[in-house]
Design a protein around this nucleic acid. Structure first.
Length: 859
RNA sequence: GCCUGGGUGGCGAAAUUGGUAGACGCAACGGACUUAAAAUCCGUUGGCCGCGAGGCCGUGCCGGUUCGAUUCCGGCCCCAGGCACCA
């Protein structure tokens, strides 16, 4: 064993050993207990960044730990390879997205391999491979047969200059990112997946996901947004406006009805009234996201239309309002200004009537003039509501709903915030939707035997529309039904489709005859899924939905894809940009910027850049930090150790490499200790019966550390505290001087335990040290160390003494001392006695094993 | 705007079930070794007061519950993630 630590040498050797022995190839062996550990696969954006290193290091620690615990571990890797950045890169460099993507995959694969992750590369997949996406197409057709996939219109961002559909990310302040043109909302036909059919299941099953973070379950629950209320229809000549409300008790306080700009009544009103038409057109410009709609100024215009109040028959005016979403419910709301803050503000702004119909119990109704805030509580009683006066919320809703039902104008209803999943994208670099449009047969599915519909890989997008629609070889096709000339669908699928089931395919790798096979029954569900918190809702919800659909189609025998979930915190870095005219933004990597924060300048031209604060490392914000420099300078083990040690996995992390020296210093120190110990010759086995006190103390530290690290790595996933505990143990070992046989024996036990405990985190150095300590094979195959409970025994405990909650002393007591003894010892402590002078002891609180608190006072 | 997290020394953090705030590191400072540097080793290190013993203050801000609050409750501020076409 070298007495110096040379990471580049031992890392190459360890990786070579694992490759030669195919150590991490997962065998489908149903006789063994399996563990499927999966990290969210990366988008091949070019280079790894620190967020990837963090994610895959965490997954690797868990995989290697479970392996040492005896599980048959599968840890695969793949590429989320379709998507927008490849098209942007193509426009910039004139390279087809396919080539750019595959080059990136090759480079990033080599980066992952250099980090020594225990991956089964035999099962690698990329979603842009026809062997993969053919099954997207195949399942889409099965969903279409069941009505789960269907067609309706949806709204997109339209850039009128480039004549193209923009992603939300490409709309900056309501303008196209390349053209600066004001973006328009456009309605076009799209395919949808009927996820709302599963809304109740998806929300109910969250309770069973008890190994998911609470916050993710809450977020999903709020996203699905189940609410119980009443569907109410406000009739007008020739129809009725449907609204949904959770506050049917306030129905008698409704003073107008507001509809979304896209609502049929709004369009009807616009035909007669140019003011309404102008307002609708204005609402149709600019950004389309919920955030933009929710933060814009609430505005509206009156129409000359009225609807009838369903109970009183009173005529209520219809307004068109920019805050009503066509996508939620039926695109209309009843306005009750006295009991809804937003409606109240709208009423004040446009001088609309306000009617109080709920008052606090035992209090007279508030005067209108005194109504500064809407009275929104459900804990009141009705007033000004005729026969309903005096009823509480629950009775009022039941009674009003019954009366509405009797008139055919409403009924109790469960409403979800969740909307169906639109999967059509008017983009080239994605999975083609397998549909053919025929003038005589209409919409015809591509026959299964013609799958996959291959995406041509040689096109280069130019920002004007979808290049697929200009590709005659792709578009022109014979109708499978009648044989006449027909056109292929040129929309591709949302990339979330690709990522909704890739975890199944790893378990069916290489099967060209079926999407999934029996191996899925063995490996799935995923035992541990690890990925960024940014996927808490969409990706995880879509995957849960997809698995349920495949289950109902008879292809899977389980409900939930991911048993245990770890949501890693984001790795953040500064974001610097320049606005280049309206809408256009360029981002600069912090490495190319001089200074930090406000006042930073671009190195290249010395001109100022705008600091946008901290943001997630990403391609789109150009603020990633490439791990290569760190790996080249310090080695993979140091990079991994630093990443794990610097913070617990769920916390977000503002990137800084301060502290990397501590990680590498620790590994050097550990290496030297092992080398010194090995050089001193063989040590005998520990004989617990003959140990001296210091030997017994070191051995107790060793086993306390094993217990702590096993819990931290196996249950808590707090790798930072596990590493700290190992560092403490190493500090004890280095202070321990005892060259006797048993002295060397307890040191050897400590060092071997440390090597085993660190093996999942810094696998290369541990592989080398394990072999130097005289073991054959690789430490990756060794068993995780066991705690010897006998070594943990202590005879005495240290208790802290407080007086009135302030620390005043401590006392050592026998581990089984009773309360009276502890109390007597505590009161006898001189430092404590000083603080009790002239005071009376009112209470003494003894917390076993922890502290004594003496409370003084009168009596 | 809405949903979800987070805020503790100069910095990353720890305190696992309401029980010693700052473990373990980084940085800094002092010392040893060295011709020197690097590397390594030893020590100090939340703030204020004190020669010292020791005392007081301190976990974003304001308030509350408790013998005891970083931890629980109410209100607020800031940062981050998500808001359905970035992935």
């Amino acid at each position: 064993m070298d007495d110096q630590y040379h990471p580049e040498k031992i890392e190459a050797q360890a990786q070579e050993w694992w490759r030669e022995h195919a150590t991490f190839r997962a065998l489908d062996d149903p006789t063994r207990e399996k563990f499927y550990c999966l990290c969210m696969f990366p988008y091949p954006s070019g280079k790894l960044h620190m967020g990837h290193v963090r994610n895959y290091t965490i997954g690797d620690v868990i995989s290697r730990f479970q392996r040492m615990r005896g599980r048959n571990v599968l840890q695969p890797m793949g590429w989320d390879a379709f998507g927008l950045p490849a098209e942007n890169a193509a426009m910039q460099n004139g390279v087809p997205p396919a080539r750019w993507t595959r080059d990136n995959i090759a480079y990033m694969r080599s980066q992952l391999q250099a980090l020594g992750f225990a991956l089964d590369w035999d099962r690698e997949l990329a979603t842009c491979d026809p062997d993969y996406y053919r099954w997207n197409q195949w399942l889409f057709l099965r969903m279409r047969e069941k009505g789960i996939a269907y067609k309706k219109t949806g709204v997109v961002n339209w850039d009128p200059v480039d004549q193209t559909v923009l992603a939300n990310e490409q709309v900056i302040d309501g303008r196209g990112w390349r053209t600066g043109a004001l973006v328009e909302r456009r309605e076009i036909p799209m395919y949808y997946l009927n996820i709302t059919r599963y809304a109740d299941q998806l929300t109910d099953a969250l309770d069973g996901l008890d190994e998911w973070p609470e916050r993710v379950r809450v977020m999903q629950q709020n996203w699905i947004g189940r609410s119980e209320g009443v569907a109410i229809r406000f009739p007008y000549d020739g129809g009725a406006v449907g609204v949904f409300t959770t506050r049917a008790d306030t129905l008698l306080g409704a003073t107008w009805v507001a509809v979304a700009p896209e609502h049929p009544l709004a369009i009807r009103a616009a035909q007669a009234d140019p003011t309404v038409a102008a307002f609708i057109e204005e609402c149709g410009r600019g950004g389309n996201t919920e955030a933009e709609i929710a933060t814009q100024e609430k505005r509206g215009v009156p129409t000359n239309l009225t609807v009838e109040h369903p109970l009183t028959g009173e005529a209520l005016p219809v307004w068109v309002a920019n805050y009503v979403l066509m996508a939620y419910g039926e695109g209309a709301v009843m306005a009750v200004p006295a009991h809804d803050q937003r409606d109240l503000e709208f009423a004040r702004k446009y001088d609309l009537p306000i009617k109080i119909v709920v008052r606090a119990r035992d209090v007279a109704p508030v005067e209108l003039t005194a109504l500064s805030e809407a009275f929104v509580t459900k804990d009141g009683v009705l007033c000004n509501s005729g026969k309903y006066d005096g009823l509480g919320f629950t009775d009022a809703v039941a009674s009003i709903a019954a009366d509405l039902a009797a008139r055919g104008l409403g009924e109790l209803k469960v409403q979800y915030r969740l909307r169906d999943w639109g999967i059509s994208r008017q983009r080239y670099w994605g999975c083609p939707i397998p549909i053919i449009h025929c003038d005589s047969c209409g919409e015809v599915p591509v026959p299964d035997e013609q799958l996959p519909v291959r995406l041509p890989e040689n096109l280069v997008p130019d920002g004007h529309g979808n290049p697929l629609s200009r590709c005659a070889d792709f578009v022109n096709v014979d109708c499978p039904a009648c044989g006449a000339a027909a056109r292929r669908e040129t929309d591709t699928m949302d990339t979330f489709v690709d990522s909704s089931w890739y975890f199944l395919r790893f378990a069916s790798a290489g099967n060209d005859d079926a999407m999934v096979d029996a191996r899925v029954d063995y490996w799935l569900p995923v035992d541990q899924y690890i990925g960024g918190i940014e996927h808490a809702i969409l990706h995880l919800l879509y995957s849960r939905f997809w698995v349920r659909v495949m289950r109902d189609l008879g292809f899977l025998g389980f409900d939930e894809p991911f048993r245990r979930l770890l949501t890693q915190g984001m790795v953040l870095n500064h974001v610097y940009s320049r606005r280049e005219g309206e809408g256009r933004v360029e981002y600069f990597n912090p490495a190319d910027v001089h200074g930090t924060g406000n006042g930073a300048t671009l190195r290249a031209d010395g001109r100022p850049v705008t600091w946008e604060g901290m943001g997630t490392m990403s391609k789109s914000k150009n603020n990633g930090v490439d791990p290569n420099r760190m790996v080249d300078e310090y080695g993979a083990d140091t990079a991994r150790l630093f990443m794990l040690f610097t913070s617990p996995p769920e916390l977000s992390l503002e990137w800084s490499d301060a502290g990397i020296d501590g990680a590498t210093r620790f590994l050097r120190r550990l290496w030297r200790q092992v080398a010194d110990h090995v050089a001193a010759g063989p040590a005998p086995a520990v004989n617990a019966q003959v140990l001296s006190d210091p030997q017994r103390v070191l051995r107790r530290h060793t086993h306390e550390t094993i217990a702590k690290v096993t819990d931290d790595v196996g249950r808590r996933y707090t790798f930072n505290t596990a590493i700290a505990a190992v560092m403490e143990l190493i500090n004890h070992v280095s202070r321990f001087e005892d060259s006797s046989e048993q002295g060397q024996a307890v040191v050897r036990e400590a060092l071997e335990s440390v090597v085993l405990m660190l093996a999942p985190m810094v696998p290369h150095i541990c592989h080398a040290m394990w072999r130097a300590l005289g073991h054959a094979g690789t430490v990756a195959d060794a068993a995780w160390p066991a705690v010897d409970d006998a070594a943990l025994v202590r005879d005495t405990l240290q208790l802290v003494i407080q007086v009135n909650g302030k620390l005043r002393g401590d006392v050592e007591v026998a581990k089984d001392a009773d309360k009276a003894t502890i109390e007597r010892l505590a009161l006898a402590d001189p430092a404590v006695a000083k603080h009790l002078e002239g005071k009376q002891v009112a209470r003494v609180i003894v917390v076993p094993g922890r502290l004594v608190n003496i409370v003084t006072g009168n009596r």
